[in-house]
Every structure is written in structure tokens, then in C-alpha cells.
Design a protein around this nucleic acid. Structure first.
Lengths: 197, 197, 197, 197
DNA sequence: AATGAATGAGGGTTCATTCAT
DNA sequence: GATGAATGAACCCTCATTCAT
């Protein structure tokens, strides 16, 4: 990549980062192109030159965000922790990028996702889900996961949790309860003791 | 209440209902006062006469919505079902009002809530939470809930689920997995069988 | 029509007139909503309240213009002048409305017309053309028009002239040549004298 | 002309051609410098380097267009057809360049012309008009044109026609009526028969 | 009390043009 | 000499809100 292209990419990256920060703080709709331009120290038109429209900028920001997030997610698996610790980390690890995400921005991402935007879909289907499935299988092998449960159910279950953790308010409330929550997760609300039936 | 006041209340109610419907479908930001006025068959100014500002209207709509939702929530407890059935109903019952709620509107409500808006806070603290706590105690007495778990943790746990269920996409995906999800909820991912430790 | 409606119509008419004047002078594209608003002494938004979009305003201005023009056109027939005088008047009469029309505006009107916009089309097909045809028939009866010529051809022929007359530059150049032009129109370039073949 | 200059002229010509095509299709106002640059495979700035401003580019394009058109016009006279055939050809010949010209572009040219832009004016005054005058004189000599008519009047008359023919809609409507139109042109609407007075 | 009319502020977007390499 | 990058100004349009009747 020559100097021209590199500088272009750098500036694009600046704009993306500025937009990402603003979107995460205030949501997509509340942030105007003007604000992004100001924060990125460029003119509005420059943004249009690079991204063509606000909609497109939003797409690119999401891609940017998703791929950054992805690396952090993937790194969670790069260790030899025992299964329960992996799970704990997976749910409670505060990823650098993902925290403090404005709910509007979050919803926009979800809308993209459920609209089947290929980039996210592919990353999720081809990489994230298989990684999780593999983890569940490991848990089943080691006796930590009931082999009768379908991986899909467990995935949904985790998904719901992981998502809730992204919300700052919930995260803060739940942090002091980590142990209890982990217990419920593993042993259910009944606990490991004797069961009524 | 004399005729004047009654008509006034009726009109207010019309406006609230119109606004609620639109907010639930499209979110708060995407709905303009003009649209609400049109749907409610009044002029924009009438809305201002009654509600002073859009922000205030939103507050009132949320109050309206929360109280409607509350009756449905309360009614979930009016039965003699065994504990597990109550839980299932609690999580999976599609309340009439709450379903299909636009995520933007949902977030606005949540923001109100976490901002400590008194009305919601009070309803939640003084009515909803005690009702839930009572339920958990019942579960503990009957051996369905581990007595070592704090009620607060269980509450959070349920909260996360109940909230996820409000989202149409998640609800639809999870419905076919009801049994698995309930199993995880009660027995954890380990299941009721022998435990590794 | 009550006072409200009357005032509304009056204001609408103001805006239409302002827009018409500007369009005729500078063309549609060169005139901004802001300019129209300033000239009509209203805010831009008022124009949008009345006309919804610039496109729509243009439509309405054209309708307004066409109907005004129509009365003047129709009045040209309300007389007992001999056929040749009628023709002369028809071609050279400077209608109050039609003169000084900016060519861009003219083209926009023509585009509307050829797009088959119903209002203009109908006026033209059902009223203007029959009126002209009738005139040609009169001319044929009185020996002023060759009965072998199709009315359609004559219509086209006149149409071309009448249109050219609308253009200020042409009109001014042609005015001193009125007699010659009329002669050509009636007797052709060959003139009434003996013909070569 | 050395290689540098030749390449420069080639590029200029490319740009002119690209601009001309676009102007003829969409009009001057609707075509942006960016589009021209893209079509000509140069950068926007190159256009500015060569033509200084859009206005100036438009001038140059018109000059380019006029001179191309001129050759075609001139060639119409290079034959030994009898007078009536020459006239017919003159009016109905669809020149290669001139056809399908967007009306906006046409008007811009006309504005240039009536503004007395020297290049066009000169070509017109010194070349086109004399050529036409010569033709009329020929017609007069051969008895096809009434010697009492001033050449200026006939010129205007033809001008109006020729112009109308440039418009696609009119051209298409008039083509099937060629014979009638030619008859009117030569013998007037009265025709060659006996005259009423 | 209710409403039609009106608006200032701001949003996304486009364009002709200039800067800087 | 040629270009990618950048921009101020303007445009159409929307919205929450106020005015005037």
C-alpha cells in the first residue's frame, strides 16, 4: 500500500473511530454527520467522499466495530483454563470495545444482523457459533454440560446472558452477584442438592 | 367527574393510546407529534395543551404503558399452579401489551427506569419486586429453589430472561426450545444427573 | 367558503403567484424554496405545509399557470373578426400571462405535458384542440384554408409558431415582420402570384 | 504540434466529447463536473486545469458542438438538388449531431446565442445566414419564392421551423405529415387553388 | 378549549471549486 | 502536469414548538 492509500486508510479509520465513539455514547440517530466531522477534524463533505451516505457510514462503523469485537471474543478462547472458568470469563469478561455501548447503536447493529447483513452473519455463523459449539462439546465431554441439552438451546441461553452483560446498568448490578449467577448457570435455581422429584 | 373532565380524560386517553401504538411500532424518535396528532384525530396543539412537550408525552405514555403492563403481570400470579408452572408462565407468557415492542421504545423506557423516574421505580420496588420475592420464597419452601441463593440474584437472573423474551426475534427463536431452556433454568447446564465434583 | 379557508386560499395563491413569477424569470431549478418564501413573505415551512414538496409546488404552479393561460386563449375566440384576423391575433396576440416565460420553466411544463399529466392533457385534448379544429373548419368553409390539408397538420404548423412566439427573443425579432410572416402563412413562400408548376 | 500539445489536445477533446454527450442527454445543470470527469476518465481538477470553470467548459462545449454542427449544415448545400428538395432536406434532415438534444442544453445554447457570444454569432452572421440568403435568392430566381418577401422574414420563418425540428417530440409527430407541412410551407394554408380575394 | 397557521433550528446531501502533493 | 483530498455554500426537507384566532 503506497503513501496515498495509507493516509486515506488512516483518515478513514479516524472517521470510523470518531463515529464509533459517538454512536456508542449517543446512538446513531442522535449523532449528526456534522458532529462526526467536527470530532474527526474533517469537513462533512469529506465524510461523504469516503462513505457516500450516513447509512453507509453506519454500515462501515458496524463492520469496524464487529471485527474489533471479534478479536477480543476470539482471544477469550486462547487459554487452557478449566471449563467453568472459561464460561465465567466468557460471560463476565468486560471486553474493551464492547462496553458502554449505547442501546440505540446496539439495536441498529442487531437490525443489521437480523436483516442478514452478510459480513456479520458470516462472522457469526462461520466463526463465533462453531467456536461456542466446540466449547459446549468440551463441557459435555468433561461432564460439565448435560449431554441431553441441544447445543442450540445452550447457545441461546448464553446469548441472552452475554447480551445482557453488554448493558452497563445490568452489568454493574450483576457483578457483585457473580458467584450466585454462575451457580444458577451451572446448577440451575434448584442447586446441586437433592431434588424434589 | 363532570362531563367536561370526562371528555378531557377521554381525549387524553386517545392521544396516549395513539402515541403508545406508534411508539411500540416505530420507536419514540421516529414518530413525530404530527403523526400522533393525525392518528388521534386532534391537532398538534391539542397535544401540547395536554402534555406540554414531546418529552412529557413520552413520560406519560410510559406511565400509561407500565400501568397497563402491570395489571397483566399481576394477574400472572393469580392462580394455584405449582411452582415450576408459574415460572414457565412468567417467562414465556406473552403479555398482551408487552409484545412486539419496538426496541427504541423499550430503551427509552429503560432509560427512564434507570434514571430513577419515580413512578416506575415505585411500582417496581413496592409491588413487582415483593411479588417476585414472595414467589422465590415459595420456591425455596417447596424445594424448587436453592435456599443458599440470594433472592436478588435470582431476580436479576429472571429479569434478564424476561427482558430478552420481550424482543420478538429472541422470543421466536426460543419458543421451540422451551423445554430445554426450562431445564437449564431449573437444573443448570449440568443437568440433574451426577455431577463431576 | 368560510374565512379560514378563504385566507388559506389567498395565501396559497400568493405563494403560487410568487413562485410563478420567479419560475418564469429564472426557471424552476434556479429558484430555491427560500427565494419563493422570501418573495411570498412566508417561511419556507409554510410552503411545505401547503404544497408538501418542491415538485408538488411546481405541479400546482403549472396548473395555476395553465388555467390562467387558458382563459386568455379562450377569449381570443370570443369575437366576430374575419378568419385572417383571427389567425393573426392567435399567433401574435401577446397574452398577458404567457409572455416572458423562462425557457427552463417552459420545458418543465412541456415535460409535464408529454408525461401525460392529466390536467394539462385534458384541457388541451378536450378544449384547446377542438377549438382550433373548429377554427380550421371555418377557414376551410370560407376558402381560407385548403380543404385538402389535414387539420392535424395545420394544428402542428400553428403549434410550432405559437410556441416560437412565446420566446421573447423570437417574438421581438418577428414583430416588425408581421405582414410578411402572415403572407407566408397564408400563401406560402411562393406567394399568391403565378406558380412555377 | 509536438507530442505534449497533441496529447493535451486529445485529452481536451475527450473531455469536451464526454461533456457534450452528457449535456445533450441530461442538460447542463443536471450534469456535475464529477460525472464529466468520470466519463472522461480524468480527475475533476484536470477539467479545471483545462477549462477554468464549469461555465467556461460549457462555452467550449457549445463552440465544439456548433462547429461540428456547422459542417453538417454546410454539407446540406453541397448538392444540385432542385430548390424544393433542398428546402425539404434543410428542414427535415436529421443531422447526426443535432438530434436528441436535451432541451436544457438547447436553451443554454440559445442563451449564449442571444447574449451575442461572438463565436456563434460570427459563424451565424458570416456563414450560415449568407448561405441561407443565397438559397432564398435562388428560390426567388426560379420562381419558388415570392420576390416581395424580405429574406429576413423567410429566414425567421425557416429558423422557427428548423428549431422546432430539433425537438424530438415535435420531430416525431411531424414526420408523418411531411407532405402536408411542405405544402403549407410553399403554398400557405390557402393552398395553390383559387384564392378568396 | 381547540385549532390552523407559522416558524427557527437543524439534518442529510450535492456541487463547483480550491488545496496540496 | 495530474490528481486525491478537502471544503463552504447552498439546497430540499422535517420537526418540535409557538402564535393567533
Amino acid at each position: 500500500m503506497d503513501g496515498f492509500k495509507r493516509r486515506r486508510e488512516l483518515k478513514k479509520s479516524h472517521i470510523l473511530q470518531a463515529a464509533l465513539t459517538l454512536f456508542m455514547d449517543f446512538g446513531v440517530q442522535k449523532v449528526s454527520i456534522k458532529e462526526i466531522a467536527t470530532k474527526a477534524n474533517v469537513s462533512q463533505v469529506t465524510i461523504y467522499n469516503y462513505f457516500e451516505s450516513k447509512n453507509n457510514l453506519v454500515h462501515e462503523v458496524i463492520k469496524h466495530y464487529i471485527s474489533e469485537t471479534w478479536w477480543e471474543f476470539e482471544s477469550l478462547f486462547d487459554n487452557d483454563l478449566p471449563f467453568p472458568e472459561k464460561i465465567k470469563k466468557l460471560i463476565f469478561a468486560k471486553t474493551e470495545t464492547a462496553q458502554h455501548i449505547n442501546s440505540n447503536f446496539y439495536n441498529v447493529i442487531m437490525k443489521e444482523y437480523s436483516a442478514g447483513i452478510s459480513y456479520i452473519e458470516e462472522l457469526y455463523q462461520k466463526k463465533a457459533i462453531p467456536k461456542m459449539m466446540e466449547l459446549f462439546e468440551e463441557g459435555k465431554r468433561e461432564g460439565y454440560v448435560d449431554p441431553d441439552l441441544s447445543n442450540e438451546s445452550i447457545l441461546m441461553y448464553f446469548h441472552i446472558f452475554k447480551e445482557a452483560m453488554q448493558r452497563e446498568d445490568i452489568y454493574n448490578k450483576i457483578l457483585p452477584m457473580t458467584e450466585d449467577i454462575m451457580k444458577i448457570l451451572f446448577y440451575g435455581i434448584i442447586g446441586k442438592g437433592d431434588h424434589p422429584n
